[in-house]
Design a protein around this nucleic acid. Sequence first.
DNA 1: TTAATAGTTTTAAAACTATCGAACAACAAA
DNA 2: TTTGTTGTTCGATAGTTTTAAAACTATTAA
Lengths: 96, 96
Amino acid sequence: MIIKQQTPNEVRAIIFKALSDEARLNIISTLYQHQQEMSCGEIGDQLDINKSTASYHFKTLREAGLTTTRKVGQNKFVSLNLDVFNTVLPGFLDTL
Amino acid sequence: MIIKQQTPNEVRAIIFKALSDEARLNIISTLYQHQQEMSCGEIGDQLDINKSTASYHFKTLREAGLTTTRKVGQNKFVSLNLDVFNTVLPGFLDTL
DNA sequence: TTAATAGTTTTAAAACTATCGAACAACAAA
DNA sequence: TTTGTTGTTCGATAGTTTTAAAACTATTAA
């Protein structure tokens, strides 16, 4: 298995790209203010996003390493990877 | 004159979009490490970017409010808007 | 005035992104 | 088993972003 080495700024660019969309920032804010994991549907309802669009945004955030998803029955719960935020963007979450 | 009201997350999205490109992050890092304003050409040379591409990236950063440009003779000097970084991304520059 | 230098703008191609409906898979409940 | 719920994937579409050559503007030097 080949792992593509990434420069620090490449890693940052991927993270900033994930954060460069208002819908995804709304997801992040909602999760942070809720102080605990939320299901995809709960977030989608609250922000009034089409479910396939929401799924696309969840995937984008997950692939950037900003969130983690846990399946419970027919639900999927999304939570913030606080360690990643604190490493790459220290103090950012507290500005939300 | 009509000023379009922007939500906090809209403002953040614009800033993150400007930071979501490796070339622009390299410009930011270079400026921060240099500890003082640099001319467009100086930055372009150091990062080996085509001058029209560089000009496009400078404009993107400027329009996001992340940099300021000052014209001196035939040169233009670019500097970081530290206050904007400190407000929107406190602590970020020190991770570079 | 002429030539050189520093940046910007225009334009067009290629690549990428966001959105949504429709079809799908996984699970739960009746 | 059938029905409903939750979320993902696919395909189409519309719009955006990045890049670089070419033409341009502004300034300085010869």
